[in-house]
Amino acid sequence: MAATRDAFGHAVLELAKDDPRIYVVDCDISKSMKTVDFARKFPKQHINVGIAEQNGAGVCAGLATVGNIPFLSTYAVFASMRACEQVRTSICYPHLNVKLACSHGGLTPANDGATHQAIEDVAIMRALPGMTVVMGADYNAAKALTKAAAYYDGPVYLRYTRDSVPDFYGHDEVFEIGKGKLLRSGGKVTVVSFGEMLHEALAAAEILRGEGVEIDLIDMSTVKPLDIDLLKESLSRTGRCVTVEDHSMIGGLGSAVGEWMAENGCGRLIRIGLNDCFGQSGPYEVLLKHYGMDRESIANAVRKLLLN
């Protein structure tokens, strides 16, 4: 168990060892973003702009124009909303090599309540031309994807969890930005998830297996650009899809998959996510259950699709 934000802190330490172009621009939450060690070990590659995310985004843009690879280190609500227009105009429009490292994606800052739970960020970031949107499902995935993002052309939005999530992938698992992973196949329904919701989807798969139902399970760690080939491979067989995300149903993974399915006349879809509402404080498991995003809700969605 580890929070994927820890993976960010460790990944940038490893990156900076071999590459003086790697910068971390913190916004007064370096303890939370796990970049304290980075600041100590690489002071010449670290900047802390204070509680000023808009400025931080601009400083990253400037660093990128002179050949660096800066990571803006903050929470998802701030990078995607407080600094949204700076990200759009100073980073995406000139397609600068800035990485937005954002913890507290989704409901995982469970006790913090809705102010700190980013449930719109993926929708916002997906809409920005040239932006890549990535979230690893566990520590190893998040770390590998962070490293891959550093050398991926252009702006990348990296979403992490505040809270610990189970380990799933081995430390030598290879991840490629833009490529999902088909973890189970041969099922009658395709379940697509990203980020830590993969673990709920895996638990749902086990529940269903107990009932003799197999599913296709995809870890879509890159939400944009979507791995169309993988979707096609699974959905052409199943024609039924459940998307699972710790995000609003509007504009995130469910929308991305649904847009593709509709345009390609491909089957039926049920979206699991927040149904146009804010979160609240509470234990993460309680929140997932309350908002109909837990393993039972996922299993129910699969059962519903199998009925007709």
Partner: peptide, 16 residues
């Protein structure tokens, strides 16, 4: 073109 953003960028350039 979006006002208010240039000085931050200039800071990033100058530090880098």
């Amino acid at each position: 073109g979006s006002l208010g953003q240039g000085l931050s960028v200039a800071c990033g350039m100058a530090i880098g």
